[in-house]
Design a protein around this nucleic acid. Structure first.
Length: 117
DNA sequence: CAAATGACGGGGT
DNA sequence: AACCCCGCCATTT
């Protein structure tokens, strides 16, 4: 595994339980702007045994990347539901569950923790 | 080597 | 909101 994949997985692992973020956002935070597709490719190559929370990564606009009705789609919805994230018609409300990862994040705002610059 | 293919994104209709 | 189209780029045909 190279450093690029490492950076991407590190960002995915940073997403808090019960929150979600997009492929594009992960790429940007990993220092790879406009490389959303790469994020998807890396996640698709994860072994079943991986503990990386891949289900917290969704497509732009809160859409679940897998086609509605497919097994992987159902699995992702199930995993999200387990941590309190509700999915409606294959989508997640980003206004409510979206995680930006930096300034403006609800958690940091509430607890005043992390890098405040 | 050319063309198709994605766990994508954004802009236009 | 739902498509379509095009940019993106590592892999696979």
């Amino acid at each position: 595994m190279n450093d690029v994949e490492q950076a991407i997985l590190a960002e995915v692992a940073r997403i808090p339980r019960g929150r979600v973020t997009t492929y594009g956002a992960v790429a940007a935070r990993a220092g790879l702007p406009r490389r959303a597709r790469l994020v998807g490719r890396v996640l698709s190559s994860l072994p079943e045994s991986s503990r990386v929370p891949w289900h917290r990564v969704i497509a732009a606009g809160g859409r679940i990347a897998f086609p509605v009705g497919t097994a992987p789609h159902e699995q992702q919805c199930r995993r999200l539901r387990c941590e309190g994230v509700e999915t409606r018609n294959g989508r997640v409300d980003l206004q409510r569950y979206g995680w930006q990862g930096t300034r403006g994040d609800l958690d940091r705002w509430l607890w005043r923790v992390g890098d405040e610059n």
